[in-house]
């Protein structure tokens, strides 16, 4: 779990390092989400290094991380389209950032088995949104 969360944290750090890119209005909405992801991931990393993990608090933090990305994902995709259409950032920069957003999502998907093993299938459903945890052949 630590590995995926840390990787996710590094990606968010990278995304925050060159932000805002073009001051598109969507960045006004993306900004608090990136900050929230950053703070929540950091708190979670600190929490899981404690000798006794507060599972209730961890559940809340994980719930926030996933819900945060549920909101972030469509906004960043829209930002990509808007920036290309408005020619307000270089296509290389846009595609690079979209690649990192996608990589971030991937980390969260890879985290799912850990969440399930920690909380069980049923409870994990209320932490992780469906599209991150759906398995083939349901």
């Amino acid at each position: 779990m630590y590995y995926q969360l840390y990787q996710a944290y590094l990606i968010i750090q990278r995304l925050l390092a060159n932000f805002p890119v073009n001051n598109n209005p969507l960045e006004l909405r993306i900004s608090p989400l990136l900050s929230e992801a950053n703070n929540t991931l950091l708190t979670t990393l600190q929490l899981i290094q404690q000798p006794q993990v507060n599972e209730h608090h961890l559940k809340y933090l994980l719930s926030v991380i996933y819900r945060n990305d549920e909101a972030l994902d469509p906004l960043t995709r829209a930002w990509g389209r808007a920036s290309l259409w408005m020619d307000s950032a270089s296509p290389t920069v846009i595609h690079e950032r979209l690649k990192w957003y996608k990589a971030y999502k991937k980390e969260l998907e890879q985290l799912v088995p850990n969440v399930k093993s920690l909380y069980g299938e049923e409870e994990a459903r209320y932490i992780v949104p469906p599209l991150y945890r759906k398995e083939v052949g349901a």
Partner: peptide, 13 residues
């Protein structure tokens, strides 16, 4: 509900 500014879904708590 969701956060009115970002659309982030709220948890029960």
């Amino acid at each position: 509900g969701k956060d009115l500014y970002t659309g982030r879904p709220r948890t029960k708590s």
